[in-house]
Amino acid sequence: MNGMTQIVKKVTQLMSGLIFMYGLYIITHGHLTPGGGFAGGAIVAGGFILLILAFGSKVISLRKEETQTSITESAALLIVILLALAGLFLGVHVFFNNYLPQGQVGELISAGVIPIYNIFIGMEVAAALLTIFLALVIYKEEVAS
């Protein structure tokens, strides 16, 4: 897959970091403003997809990247399950228990474990979407060659 023209490349260079940052904002403020892990993860994945589409598949080694995203995805899902399991042993013994102190409603550091769940679900969603996209790109390269 070849890259696009100079114009797209330059705009991508300027914008991809900001798109990534916006995704992180959506994830970390998921318990205060609209958004959360799902939306933010998809935006983060969108930033990377934009980068790959603009610069072509030569810019990264696809195989290595796919392995990395797979590992990230699995690790994030595992951490979510471990966090949920921790609720079974701490405080009230309930799966998915919110065991951390909840703080003031409306502050950034509040709502106990929910922001942490958000972060890891966001990681999982981003890595899963990237894995799907990279698998398609790799398949296309292999068919073409």
Binding site: K10, T12, Q13, L14, G17, T28, G47, L108
Partner: peptide, 19 residues
């Protein structure tokens, strides 16, 4: 603090593509 951490991650991941 959260913003600084997020910006650090973003800079590490996207720094090599910047202008």
């Amino acid at each position: 603090v959260v913003g600084a951490v997020a910006a650090l991650i973003g800079a590490l991941l996207f720094g090599k593509y910047f202008v």
